[in-house]
Simulated scan of single mutants.
Amino acid sequence: MKKKLGIAVLAVSFLAFLFMGTTQNASAQTVNDYIISNQIKPATIQNREGTFSEWFPYENGVGKPEGIVIHETADNNATAEDEVSFFNNNWPRVEAYVHAFVDNNEIINIHNTDYGVWGAGPTANSKFIQVELCRTHDYDSFARSIANDAYYAASKLLQYNIPDKPEKTIVSHNQVSLTYHETNHSDPTGYFKNQGYSMYQLYDMIGYYYNNLKTTGNAYGVSAATQEAVNPNSTIKVDNKNGSYVPLVAFSNNQMIKIKNRALANHTAWYTDQTKNISGVTYHRVATNEWVAASYLE
């Protein structure tokens, strides 16, 4: 469709410069880690009634969506407010409308998600809630927009008791086009690629919020204050006395994998929530699947 900086933030910002130069692009996992490490707070979902006057049920009935379609606006300059205004004024002419628009600052829901919209062809329209992600132009704003998009998707899945199933209950417009052949749009694939991101990483972010919201009612499981009370030593400071950065590793079935495109800057502090001991070495978790050996602690 057309048309608080804490120690973790400072450390991630330094790494973004170290590994990405001055571009906005980052590895997809870095974006999710940036969101989680800094506990970026998703915006509150605003419910405003828009002008779309076509009230039709999903194929299974009113209030029975089967999942959610992720769109991207393809407009370099429009905010969520801009998009809401445009579609409220022009949907009869452009013959398009979605449930919500998301940017780095706002989540605006403009049509009751109990009913369908015109966003991705007749088949998808009769099955899915649909949300448009607005473009941003810097790393932090992109991360915040992803947090908002993932939070909206997770919240809607939970609202309608829909399971979190990537590529089944969460789909891109690109997947819809390839599956039903009723539209030729490929969003948000191209935009995500330009940011070094992907739908698979968005699935991970949605799943993270989905599980936390389902079990605790909080996007991050527990508040930072609660976590500190449970584990007052949850911040570590790292340093590699024999190098210019601190290496990271990942684990798959307790098999260690060296991470080659990410590292921690020396003399930086990181929040950690888990430890594990592998072959006599203790590792501290600093991101979703990124760990630092205890030998690098200051």
Results as ranks from 00 to 15, higher is better:
Lys4Val: 11
Leu5Cys: 04
Gly6Tyr: 05
Ile7Leu: 11
Ala8Gly: 02
Ala11Val: 00
Ser13Trp: 12
Leu18Pro: 00
Leu18Arg: 14
Leu18His: 11
Leu18Lys: 12
Asn25His: 11
Asn25Gln: 15
Ala28Arg: 03
Gln29Ala: 10
Thr30Gly: 02
Thr30Cys: 03
Val31Tyr: 15
Ile35Trp: 09
Gln39Val: 03
Pro42Asn: 11
Pro42Tyr: 09
Thr44Met: 13
Asn47Gln: 14
Thr51Arg: 12
Thr51Met: 05
Phe52Pro: 00
Phe56Glu: 15
Tyr58Arg: 04
Ile68His: 10
Val69Pro: 00
Ile70Val: 15
Glu72Arg: 09
Thr73Gly: 03
Thr73Gln: 11
Glu81Val: 12
Val84Arg: 13
Ser85Gln: 15
Ser85Thr: 15
Phe87Thr: 09
Pro92Arg: 15
Ala96Ile: 06
Tyr97Cys: 05
Val102Leu: 08
Asn105Met: 14
Ile107Leu: 07
Ile107Met: 05
Ile110Pro: 02
Asn112Thr: 08
Tyr115Ala: 08
Trp118His: 14
Ala120Trp: 10
Gly121Ser: 12
Pro122Glu: 15
Pro122Trp: 12
Ser126Ile: 09
Lys127Phe: 09
Ile129Tyr: 10
Ile129Thr: 11
Arg135Trp: 14
His137Thr: 11
Tyr139Ala: 09
Ala143Ile: 08
Arg144Tyr: 07
Ser145Gly: 15
Ser145Ala: 15
Ile146Trp: 11
Asn148Ala: 07
Tyr151Val: 03
Tyr151Asn: 09
Ser155Tyr: 03
Tyr160Leu: 01
Tyr160Thr: 04
Asn161Met: 02
Pro163Thr: 03
Asp164Val: 03
Lys165Gly: 01
Pro166Thr: 03
Glu167Met: 02
Lys168Ala: 06
Lys168Glu: 14
His173Met: 09
Val176Met: 02
Val176Ala: 02
Leu178Asp: 09
His185Arg: 12
Ser186Gly: 04
Pro188Asn: 04
Thr189Asn: 10
Tyr197Phe: 12
Tyr197Val: 01
Ser198Ile: 04
Ser198Trp: 07
Met199Arg: 06
Met199Glu: 08
Tyr203Gln: 01
Asp204Gln: 14
Gly207Ala: 04
Gly207Trp: 08
Tyr209Trp: 05
Asn211Ile: 03
Asn212Tyr: 07
Leu213Lys: 07
Asn218Glu: 08
Ala224Trp: 04
Glu228Pro: 00
Ala229Met: 12
Val230Met: 10
Val230Ser: 10
Asn231Glu: 07
Pro232Arg: 13
Ser234Thr: 05
Asp239Leu: 02
Asn240Phe: 10
Ser244Asn: 11
Ala250His: 06
Phe251Lys: 02
Ser252Leu: 08
Ser252Thr: 11
Ile259Tyr: 03
Asn261Trp: 12
Ala263Arg: 03
Leu264Pro: 00
Ala265Gly: 14
His267Leu: 04
Thr275His: 04
Asn277Tyr: 02
Ser279Thr: 07
Gly280Arg: 08
Tyr283Asp: 00
Val286Leu: 00
Asn289Gly: 07
Glu290Lys: 04
Ala293Gly: 05
Ala294Cys: 03
Ser295Trp: 02
Tyr296Asp: 00
Tyr296Ser: 03
